[in-house]
């Protein structure tokens, strides 16, 4: 902070910079994915419980079922989307060191996107019957 900042109030520094203007979008997407996950996670818990004791072929056949495959992909996308939004809010609240905040935000985004792509691709491979 340079010397002339001492003569300025914090309001003066904040004024004119504007809001990020996407706070409500974060809020809304967090709620939409939450509502989707209420239904989808109950569905996935039911699916997992129904497969307990099943062998490899039985589990693979269940995941390959078109209805299960579609809802699983929806669950995976909503999960990692919601995960990124939630982690973002937590990091914004608790990590105050600038480089660490940026690094962890990027890490969360990359891990969530990669996890979503890898798991969705796995479901597609199973659903299409490839090896």
């Amino acid at each position: 902070m340079s010397t002339h900042d001492k003569l300025r109030t914090p309001l003066k520094r904040a004024r004119g910079l504007g809001s990020a203007k996407d706070g409500t979008h974060h809020f809304i997407m967090q709620r939409i994915t939450a509502i989707a996950l209420v239904v989808l996670s109950i569905y996935v818990i039911g699916l997992v419980i129904s497969l307990i004791g099943g062998d490899y072929a039985a589990v693979r056949t269940a995941v390959a079922n078109p209805v299960h495959a579609v809802l699983l992909v929806a669950f995976l996308v909503a999960t990692f989307w919601h995960a990124q939004l939630g982690m973002q809010a937590i990091i914004e609240d608790y990590v105050h060191t600038a480089w660490l905040a940026v690094t962890s935000q990027l890490l969360v985004i990359f891990v969530c996107v990669l996890a979503a792509i890898a798991s969705v691709l796995a479901v597609i491979r199973i659903a299409l019957g490839g090896a």
Binding site: Y56, V59, R60, V63, L76, T79, F80, A83, G86, M87, I90, V111, C112, A115, A118, S119, L121, A122, V123, R125, I126, A131
Partner: peptide, 28 residues
């Protein structure tokens, strides 16, 4: 918040489960 963070870590386990299922009987 705590359970949210736990679930993020847990979700990565789902990824491993699906990758194992797609990879083959041995991995599964």
């Amino acid at each position: 918040r705590t359970t949210g963070v736990i679930l993020v870590a847990g979700s990565l386990l789902i990824v491993f489960a699906l990758l194992a299922l797609a990879a083959g009987p041995q991995e599964w």
